[in-house]
Structure formats: structure tokens, C-alpha cells
Amino acid sequence: MSRFKNKQGKETPKVSTASLPDIVFMLLFFFMVVTVIRQKETLVDITLPQATEIAKLQNSRKTEHIYIGQDRRATTHEAPRVQINDKFIQVDDIHFTIADPAKDDDIIALEVDREVSMGIVTDVKTEIRKANRLKIHYMANQDYEK
């Protein structure tokens, strides 16, 4: 009888929080693995166009990015500029910078603002062809409306 009463009076045991750090660490590792820290800061303003037939960039660590857009610091409407590796570059010099026979199979990602005109894009594409880096990706965002 006394044993029975004793049991009833017992408080509900606390939920063990010992495994909480493990759960949080698991989340932490997940985020660390999934996210890509961008070391490159863009000097140009870019709003990507939208498209439906897009594929994920394979081997994103090996891809080189070329940015085309208006200078971020520009106060008035200016001609678009080209950025590779943290700095602005003249269009005519692009093929010297990116030509590398060892990288012929690596992809070049073109990140171009949607309002840029095709003239400069074509010039950049010609430079890419001169450098014999023929695999490119036109970066775009998924169009969810279609």
C-alpha cells in the first residue's frame, strides 16, 4: 500500500536535454555543408533573367564566373561593365585572363543582368570562344509562373 502511494506522489520525470547538443550540432553541420560561402563580391548590379529549362551547375567549385552589369557605384545610367575575379576587366582582355588549356572542360558561368543589351554579351562570348572555353552556362532563376 505504502509502495503504491509513493509511486503516485512522484513527479513526472524531466525530459532529458542531454541529446539537445547532438541535435543542434547535426543541424549546424547540415547548414555548413549545404551552404556555399561566396568569397567573391560582385562589383556590378545583377538581376538574373528567369527561365524554365535550367539545369544545376555541376562542379560549381571549378566554374569561373563572368559578371556583366552596371557598376554598383554608378549614380547615373552607365554602360555595363565586365567583372572577373573581383575586378573589372576590359572586354578585349578577357581571353587572356580565361584561356587555360587545362580548364577547357570546365564551365564558364555567365551572370548577366537582364537589362544589359546583347552587344556586350556577344563581344564577351566571342572572347570566350577565342579562349577556347566552349562550355558555358547562362545563369538564370527558375520561373515558377510557367
Binding site: 549546424l28 547548414f31 555548413m32 549545404v34 551552404t35 556555399v36 560561402i37 561566396r38 527561365a51 529549362e53 535550367i54 539545369a55 544545376k56 551547375l57 560549381s60 566554374t63 558561368a109 555567365l110 562570348k125 566571342t126 570566350i128 570562344r129 577565342k130 577556347n132 566552349l134 562550355k135 558555358i136 552556362h137 547562362y138 545563369m139 538564370a140 532563376n141 527558375q142
Partner: peptide, 20 residues
């Protein structure tokens, strides 16, 4: 990590250019 990182979707249209 949640605050500093942005999950960047690296997606685009694949294309192959003709040799120069």
C-alpha cells in the same frame, strides 16, 4: 551560419559555343 550564408541556387541554361 544561418545569418551569414545564403543558399545560392547555381542554376542556368547550358549552352555550347562554336570554336573561334
Amino acid at each position: 551560419f544561418l545569418v551569414t550564408t545564403t543558399i545560392s541556387a547555381e542554376k542556368g541554361i547550358m549552352a555550347k559555343l562554336p570554336p573561334y
